[in-house]
Design a protein around this nucleic acid. Structure first.
Length: 831
RNA sequence: GCCUGGGUGGCGAAAUUGGUAGACGCGCCAGACUCAAACUCUGGUGGGGUAAAACCCGUGCCGGUUCGACUCCGGCCCCAGGUACCA
């Protein structure tokens, strides 16, 4: 029998051939000729955090990206497909604390191992552009850009909440707080305010929202998530005067999207950190204790939104701006100081949360909206003893505003407030400015300097980068920068006097927000980006996990606009088409969180080779779907690749190449040709338009099965088999590039398959003489008929009525309606 | 809690625009090869029903629209992702 399918030899040989031909280096950007941009294709998969080893989630993501890139190359595009490392982050510090290995070394070691795994998988990356975000050559430009933004007024400093571990005396990430306790110390975590740097992403809120409309290549679900996250709303800011407090604190401003319910406000709630709360607590020990207790909650929205709603009366009174009535001011643990003004008006009759709070504390519930009169039998419920009535309706108990509907009431009440200078219409966003400070070591140093004389000032451009020392030891959970005199001490960039460096580092989303542009402009020493970035960006196809649907993608979109406004790129959006991958799960959880060694593809690669792993992964599920990974499928795909190799070998052993003469083909030859061209056509559609690759693998299985069952009848049929095999290899090549390259050579092709051209479909080969129509009677399948493809309803009905089983169900009844779906089905409606 | 997805045989899935539910693969069963096993090959494989057919049921649950619903609409249940310091 034929030679054995030996993936290790075959794969090594194919990779040597690609390297020798240097066929994955992106060409043509040096010219930066935008007229050539049409055949340029930037294919990018989200770069990984170098956590130690690849897991199957990585294998899925990079195989999918590779399939897209390889397909585009077959279609004649010049493809840029780079790879690098999102190298800063928390796990490196955890490893350092645990094992005493410096984060830089740990990270570099991981990169080396994971790079080797990627190379083994045969991804068509342009490795000449590789970088890690912890390279000073990379992060220096991030520092440079931050200073540019600072100069433009897009950076500011303010206090904001962090999780504070009182035992370890350190700031914890949300992930490091488990059930309200520090994961290492076990101490109850407290919210604490720290001064931090913020980027004014809210200045771009309007554009980030409106530009979503034009992102036709993005999934609707992701756009919807971003829309909701940005959360544009139209409402009214309302001022409540507070009596008996210092003048500068006497105005309590709240924002509401429901000014129509203003007359139903029965109390005002403020955040625990609100200054008025502190004021009242000064003479109220139990209130002070309550406020202190409120801080013992993790600063994560999910926790705040699900905790028990608690509150205390401050004793203060807020004056209703329209009625003059005095409303009690309560401290409530669910009001966030960071969102809006840290105060809300409460209308228990028409807001469910306020209703529950009012029920709990015996606060007044006063209806001011009632359901619109309706023609329906079942009018909307409005029983305020059971729940709040939150729908829009008509105003009652609102004096001059009675009878107005939502829109009219909104306008009238807003106007009344504006007249009294006690309120104003505003557009509000849920989106908050981006806090970029992290109290961590392993990140990009924030290039700011603290000077006793000049205050907080940016470092001078010519002294960048502010280098992160890499030779450090973690003697303590705290960042080593805090006690590193050599790092800490510097001279003030303004006055030249002694000064201290900022010890916070950037949020790692800062690095991942512009790496795609840097890939297009690698080794640019004297600028953050050069003209090549304009040439390659925006990314044509961006591939990554659904877990990045909001934060990473929103920050990257924001950054792209910042780069644009700095003149560094010339497009408005960074990613034209977006493929959001579902999770690869292990025990029901995402791989990166739970897999460990169980997710490492290494053993599978050693046993079955890269092609079988890649094919099994692509075959397992459509890209956007999450699924539980199982190794069981790899064996099956390995078997399939072996069979395909045998089919090529068998074909070869039967003679030489044959020239195709369509007219000379037998019926079987034509049938095989139809299957081959149909597979080619559908594969092209699946690759290019549908971006669904599991069905491509199925299609090649079917084609291979058809080749197996094919019985040549005439000499000319050999050419049909050859064409079918050629197509099978072409179609499968983006998914299993090594073995298809090997078999491509066996079939006598001398060019590399990776850089060959995708063949054209012969539409003539697809034409059928007859088609099978399913015959339904009242929507149930009762028979099948063989008819001409263009058969008319009358003729089809006649043919159907020659089927005895169809007759059984139509006998003695009249055919009232006939529905013909050409090529598919005929439905006879009888009665 | 809120936002966004998902739920189809024993398992992964397919069904592209509302038109044959289960393509393709795994597993399993039977047979061939073998001293035997593994590999490989051939056939079968949603449930009920039948000698075999016919036929009936079936895409998380309840209801609706339609000649026809996995697909559209309303309500619910469960699972996953995100929730601003995991990346």
């Amino acid at each position: 029998m034929a030679e054995e399918y030996n993936p290790h030899e075959i794969e090594a040989a194919a990779q040597r051939a690609w390297a020798a031909a240097d066929c994955f280096s992106a060409e043509g950007d040096a010219a930066a000729d935008t007229t050539l941009a049409d055949d340029a294709f930037y294919c990018l998969s989200m770069f990984p955090y170098p956590s130690g080893q690849l897991h199957m989630g990585h294998v899925r993501c990079y195989t999918l990206g590779d399939v897209i890139g390889r397909f585009q190359r077959l279609k004649g595009k010049r493809v840029l497909q780079p790879m690098g490392w999102d190298a800063f982050g928390l796990p490196a510090e955890n490893a350092a604390i645990k094992n005493g290995i410096p984060p830089a070394r740990w990270t570099r070691d991981n990169i080396a191992y994971m790079r080797e795994q990627m190379q083994r998988l045969g991804f068509a990356f342009d490795w000449s552009r590789e970088f890690a975000t912890c390279d000073p050559e990379y992060y220096r430009w991030e520092q440079w850009f931050f200073i540019k933004l600072y100069e433009k007024g897009l950076v500011y400093r303010k206090s904001s909440m962090v999780n504070w571990d009182p035992v370890d005396q350190t700031v914890l990430a949300n992930e490091q707080v488990v059930d309200g306790k520090g994961w290492r110390s076990g101490a109850t975590v407290e919210r604490r305010e720290l001064p931090q740097y913020f980027l004014k992403i809210t200045e771009y809120a309007d554009e980030l929202l409106s530009a979503l409309e034009d992102l036709d290549g993005w999934p609707e679900s992701v756009k919807s998530m971003q829309r909701n996250w940005i959360g544009r709303s139209e409402g009214v800011e309302i001022d409540f005067a507070v009596a008996g407090v210092p003048a500068d604190q006497s105005l309590l401003t709240v924002y509401t999207t429901r000014p129509d319910t203003l007359l139903g406000a029965t109390y005002v709630a403020i955040a625990p950190e609100h200054p008025l709360g502190g004021l009242a607590a000064a003479s109220d020990a139990s209130l002070a204790e309550f406020i202190e207790d409120c801080k013992k909650v993790k600063a994560a929205e999910a926790d705040l939104a699900t905790m028990e709603k608690l509150g205390r009366d401050t004793g203060l009174k807020a004056v209703h701006p329209l009625t003059g009535r005095e409303l009690p001011v309560w401290v409530a643990n669910f009001v966030l100081m960071e969102y809006g003004s840290g105060a809300v008006m409460s209308v228990p009759a028409h807001d469910q949360r306020d209703w529950e709070f009012a029920q709990k504390y015996g606060l007044s519930i006063e209806q001011v909206v009632e359901p619109e009169p309706t023609a329906y039998d079942d009018p909307p419920r409005c029983d305020l003893t059971q729940a709040a009535y939150t729908a829009y309706g008509r105003l009652v108990n609102s004096g001059e505003f009675d009878g107005l509907d939502f829109t009219a009431a909104f306008d009238a009440i807003a106007a009344a407030l504006e007249e009294k200078s006690a309120g104003r219409r505003t557009v509000n966003f849920r989106l908050r400015d981006w806090g970029v400070s992290r109290q961590r070591y392993w990140g990009c140093p924030i290039p700011m300097v603290h000077c006793d004389r000049c205050g907080v000032v940016p470092e001078r451009e010519d002294r960048l980068p502010v280098l992160l020392p890499t030779d450090v030891t973690f003697e303590w959970v705290q960042s080593p920068l805090v006690n590193d005199a050599e790092f800490l001490n510097c001279t003030c960039p303004v006055c030249g006097g002694p000064a201290r460096r900022e010890t916070d580092t950037f949020d790692t989303f800062m690095e991942s927000s512009w790496y795609y542009a840097r890939f297009a402009s690698p080794n640019s020493d004297d600028a953050m980006l050069d003209e090549r970035a304009k040439y390659w960006t925006p990314v044509d196809h961006y591939v990554g996990g659904i877990e990045h649907a909001i934060l990473h993608l929103l920050y990257a979109r924001f950054y792209h606009k910042l780069l644009r406004d700095e003149g560094l790129v010339d497009s408005d959006e960074p990613f034209e088409q977006l493929l959001m991958l579902g999770m690869v799960l292990k025990d029901g959880k995402k791989m990166s969180k739970s897999a460990g060694d169980a997710g490492n593809p290494q053993k599978l690669l050693e046993k079955y080779g890269a092609d079988a792993v890649r094919t099994a992964m692509m075959f397992a599920a459509p890209p956007e779907q999450s699924f539980e990974w199982s190794e069981a499928g790899v064996e099956g795909q390995s078997r399939f690749l072996k069979r395909l190799a045998q089919q090529v070998e068998q074909f070869r052993s039967n003679g030489t190449e044959a020239a195709l003469d369509v007219a000379a083909l037998s019926k079987a030859g034509k049938a095989l040709r139809r299957v081959a061209h149909d597979a080619l056509k559908r594969a092209e559609d699946d690759y290019g338009r549908r971006v669904q690759f599991n069905t491509v693998v199925s299609r090649v299985h079917e084609l291979s099965n058809a080749i197996k069952d094919f019985q040549p009848e005439v000499d000319a049929d050999r050419a049909a088999a050859q064409e079918a095999l050629t197509f099978a290899l072409m179609i499968l090549s983006p998914i299993a590039p090594h073995v298809t390259q090997h078999l491509w050579e066996q079939l006598g092709h001398h060019e590399l398959l990776a850089t060959a051209r995708w063949p054209a479909v012969d539409e003539q080969a697809l034409v059928l003489d007859t088609v099978e129509l399913v015959v339904q009677v009242n929507g149930k399948v009762r028979g099948r008929i063989e008819v001409a493809p263009d058969v008319q309803a009358d003729a089809a009905q006649q043919a159907a009525l020659s089927d005895p089983n169809v007759v059984r169900f139509t006998e003695g009844k009249t055919v009232r309606k006939t529905i013909l779906v050409p090529g598919k089905l005929l439905n006879l409606v009888v009665g």
